[in-house]
């Protein structure tokens, strides 16, 4: 029997789903609405110095990677199954797009955050 990578992908899907529910709405509100529009929060919260300092710490790196990578893999599995629901059956092309792109983004996220 060939080994399946389904449990790995499903774990990432589940972890991403939980994280998106637990912190997603708050993060979107802060990074996309409150800070850019200056509602309730100051622009300084996301200033270059603060974000750079955050990304320099190991805790910051782990949080940044967890949010980006897990959100992406969570979405990837859903989009993969959604394509199936719309009649695009699992094949090399849909797997390349749904799992190849998040894989590249994962590598890129590590590549960009680790040297900071």
């Amino acid at each position: 029997m060939t080994r399946s990578n389904a449990p790995l992908v499903w774990s990432l899907f589940g972890a991403g789903g939980v994280l998106a529910a637990l912190v997603g709405p708050a993060l979107v509100f802060v990074t996309g609405i409150a800070v850019p529009a200056g509602i309730l929060m100051s622009h300084d919260l996301m200033s270059y110095q603060r974000m750079f300092g955050f990304a320099q710490s190991w805790a910051g790196k782990i949080i940044i990677l967890a949010v980006i990578v897990l959100f992406l893999w969570h979405a990837a599995l859903r989009i993969f199954h959604m394509l199936h629901d719309f009649g695009i059956h699992p094949g090399v092309a849909s797997k390349l797009i749904c799992f190849g792109l998040p894989f590249l983004c994962t590598v890129a996220a590590f590549y960009w955050v680790l040297p900071i």
Binding site: G16, A20, G24, V28, T31, G32, Y48, M51, F52, A55, I64, V67, I68, F71, L72, H74, A75, A76, R78, I79, H81, M82, D85, C105, A108, A109, W112, V113, P115, I116
Partner: peptide, 22 residues
């Protein structure tokens, strides 16, 4: 299931932010 499209978009927006930060 369709919520995933915007979850992915948000992750990409943050990823671009990380690239720009670096």
């Amino acid at each position: 299931e369709a919520t995933s499209v915007l979850v992915a978009l948000y992750a990409v927006i943050l990823l671009v932010g990380l690239l720009r930060l670096s």
